[in-house]
Design a protein around this nucleic acid. Structure first.
Length: 498
RNA sequence: GGUCCUGUGGCCGAGUGGCUAGGCAGAGCUCUGCAAAAGCUCCCACAGCGGUUCGAAUCCGCUCGGGACCUCCA
């Protein structure tokens, strides 16, 4: 079997993955800022790294997956006075900051559950780790890489850049950072424009504030991830994930802080997912083109033609390699919806496939070989930097074979028992365990099953006496409420609801 | 302005030197009481112009287009 290769943003190439501690993997993923609702764009990293987590587990690693909740908010430097985003919003909505944060955290968890993502091993909050952040800032000051001005503390980028490679991850040229012409608030306190805040003194109106050695204030943007990653994963760990837009300055600064405090580069493999776009533009607050997850699931948004099931969204995201941009459109989502349905129905048909008392003898050696090859390639493709798009493509190549066997267009004897067993096993592993897909159609309760069976019986009887008025009425009325009846090749009827 | 990425068939998207990606849509056929579903077949694309090569969507150059980051951002 091929080895897992991961594209490392730091080296800009695919590298064979080996874990620092044999059998164990430490993985940190930048989590949501819970100052507002998550949108479609946010779904991408959490689904992407969910598959990474699931696959590493599948490979037998014991993974500690840490994903933070940013509930302390970042200050805004641009324009106006520095304000804490969360504190700001709280006033608008007349809520306590922690009440607001709780609300959006709950909403986030609700969406993650619907996406069938596995919960992280640890989900630390920024507000719960103020002590660790202050501790790290103190270390930075002691080491001479941070300085205090008027109750705020800044990281000395110029000094760091003199001894380390600041800009390596994001491809930034350090000289250019120093030449930035933009005027930023608080700039006059910094020794250099490129310096970033570790701790900000809080203005009196700030609601979220903590005591520190430098006075009352709140932590800067980047320090929380460094502090929490260090605490739970150690000075150096295997994987750090997040959106591409976090490469600079967030991840670059994380590297700088952690390198000084822990005397080693913190992360071995940096992984960044690309953006979800809408009409070619990145989805984001500043672009005014966000579709919130609640809107996506309910269809309640001007550009949505209908509601989309979370599983459809998950499938949609997995049909693309995570490092490519993914363009949203109703057409694309609806294509995903139909594709997932077809895949799932074939998957269910496969699991019900039996030998029918016949010998599975690989009567069609060519087809048999083709199927086992398609299945074997699942491993190869996922190992190639998690190419879920190619895994799914192979599954779709297997769909006609499965359906043909089900409909007896191809005899079961065409495949060997070994191949069929392999197919069943690997499809289950990949579809459910690794890709984390689930059945979209709801309502599998017993009463409905009973009612449907009754309708199917009545329709069969009507058809038997050529009473097509009745049989069509049953079929059409069910269709109008979203239940599809299918006459199978063997004379039975099945149904599915959408 | 700087740094970087990117341009694939009606739509979404794999793919880095030679082999059908795949999904959705569309057309035809088979099956069916009629449908739906399913199966089979077709639609054989790679922004443009040069270059390298026996051979390029894939490498190089230029042109044009799109995007990301440089500021909070998944």
């Amino acid at each position: 079997m091929s080895q897992l290769k991961v594209y490392n943003s730091l080296t800009r190439q695919k590298e064979v993955f080996t874990s620092l501690t044999p059998g164990h993997v430490g993985m940190y993923v930048c989590g949501p800022t819970v100052s507002g609702e998550s949108h479609l764009g946010h779904a991408r990293p959490y689904i992407t790294f969910d598959v990474v987590y699931r696959y590493l587990n599948h490979l037998g690693y014991k993974v500690r997956y840490v994903r933070n909740i940013t509930d302390a908010g970042h200050f805004e430097e641009e324009g106006r006075e520095a304000t804490d985003k969360i504190a700001d919003k709280a006033i608008l909505e007349k809520l306590e900051p922690m009440e607001l944060v709780q609300k959006y955290t709950n909403l986030f968890h609700w969406a993650m559950h619907l996406f069938n993502t596995v919960s992280p091993s640890i989900e630390p909050t920024a507000t719960g780790h103020i002590v660790e952040q202050i501790g790290m800032i103190e270390q930075l000051i002691e080491a001479g890489y941070a300085y205090e001005v008027n109750g705020s503390v800044y990281f000395d980028v110029k000094k760091y850049a003199a001894n380390y490679d600041y800009g390596k991850l994001s491809g930034r040229v350090i000289e250019e950072l120093f030449e930035t012409t933009r005027e930023l608030d608080g700039q006059e306190e910094k020794r250099d424009r490129a310096d970033f805040a570790l701790w900000k003194a809080a203005a009196p109106e700030h609601i979220m504030r903590w005591k520190s050695p430098w006075g009352v204030g709140y932590p800067g943007w980047h320090i929380e991830c460094s502090a929490m990653a260090t605490k739970y994963l150690g000075a150096q760990f295997d994987i750090h994930g997040g959106g591409m837009d976090l490469q600079f300055p967030h991840h670059e600064s994380e590297i700088a802080q952690s390198t000084i405090c822990n005397h080693t580069a913190p992360v071995r493999y940096w992984m960044h997912n690309n953006m979800i776009t809408i009409n070619g533009k990145k989805m984001g607050k500043s672009y005014n083109n966000v579709i919130k997850l609640t809107e996506l699931f309910s269809g309640n948004h001007p550009i949505l033609e209908k509601a989309y099931h979370p599983m459809v969204v998950r499938f949609f995201i997995l049909q693309t390699q995570y490092r490519s941009t993914l363009d949203f459109s109703n057409e694309a989502l609806q294509a995903a919806e139909k594709g997932l349905k077809r895949l799932w129905e074939a998957y269910e048909a496969l699991s019900k496939l039996t030998d029918d008392g016949l010998q599975m003898t690989a009567g069609d050696t060519e087809l048999d070989a083709k199927c086992s090859k398609l299945v074997a390639e699942f491993d190869e493709f996922i190992n190639d930097d998690f190419n879920t798009a190619k895994v799914l493509a192979n599954m779709f190549e297997l769909v006609p074979v499965i359906n043909s066997i089900k409909d007896k267009i191809i005899p079961v004897t065409a495949l060997s028992k070994t191949t069929v067993e392999l197919l069943k096993k690997q499809m289950k592993v990949y579809v459910e365990d690794i890709l984390g897909l689930q059945n979209v159609s709801a309502a599998d309760n017993e009463k409905l099953q009973g009612v449907m069976q009754l309708l199917i019986d009545i329709r069969k009887e009507a058809k038997g006496r050529k009473d097509f008025v009745t049989s069509d009425k049953i079929r059409n009325q069910l269709a109008s409420i979203g239940i599809q009846l299918k006459d199978e090749k063997d004379g039975t009827m099945s149904w599915s609801s959408s």
